[in-house]
Amino acid sequence: MSETLARLLEGCAAAPGAIGCGVRQPGRPSHVQSFHKEFSSEALEKALLHLANANALMANHDISGKWVTWKFAHAQIFATTRSDGALFCLITRRGAEAGEFFESMASRFATAT
């Protein structure tokens, strides 16, 4: 993983209500950071895979966006996918106002190599 992406993931610790984050690039190992003991790295890696699959399935229905938010009772998952298929996600506590934070991280991710 590049230093830029590593810094991006480390920076996610500052997100309001941060729980975890990760980057998945096609054909490369995934990288995750957990900020909560109940969210293991293994589980976060699986979540990245599910998010990538979900993204592909939604694209089949002509639904794609700059970024998406999966809202659950206890947490929310922000995710964005680049045109090269790389995916970046941030998990925060539900209700934490992390939208703007994610949007700014997503724009950094869009150009990170």
Partner: peptide, 19 residues
């Protein structure tokens, strides 16, 4: 599937921000 591996609680909704 997402909630199976993580303690996220019950799914509520997906919001897609588009241009």
């Amino acid at each position: 599937l997402l909630a199976k591996g993580l303690p996220l609680g019950q799914f509520d909704r997906l919001e897609i921000q588009q241009a």
